[in-house]
């Protein structure tokens, strides 16, 4: 697969840019967290495209952001569960 570049992104519409980034990020995230991959990818797509490109190039950077996103997601879900219990 051809690596995604900034110039490739620049040629696309904003909505398409996120789609392209998501398609590249998803399989990498799925390797780390198979059941949460869709949600984590959705969260990470809120980040700037330039940083997302960097994450695609740097395993270390991607890994740390994914772990950050998982922590936020779990805290969010725990809060929801607590609220439902009353």
């Amino acid at each position: 697969q051809v690596p995604l570049t900034a110039s490739m992104l620049a040629a696309a519409l904003p909505q398409e840019q996120k789609q392209m980034l998501g398609e590249r990020l998803y399989p990498l995230i799925q390797d780390m967290h198979p059941t949460l991959a869709g949600k984590i990818t959705g969260m990470l797509l809120e980040i700037d495209n330039s940083e997302l490109l960097h994450m695609l190039e740097s395993q270390e950077s991607l890994h740390s952001k994914v772990e950050e996103a998982v922590a936020v997601l779990q805290a969010h879900q725990a809060k929801d569960t607590a609220q439902k219990k009353g």
């Binding site: 909505q15 996120k18 398609e23 998803y26 399989p27 990818t41 959705g42 969260m43 997601l73 929801d80």
Partner: peptide
């Protein structure tokens, strides 16, 4: 408002159009 939103975050599904960001300026 407590800011809670059980639908957050939007889920990305490969092969489907991404609709998570509806408010991007063209």
């Amino acid at each position: 408002s407590n800011g809670s939103n059980i639908n957050w975050p939007p889920e990305f599904r490969p092969g489907e159009p991404w609709k998570g960001l509806q408010n991007i300026d063209p």
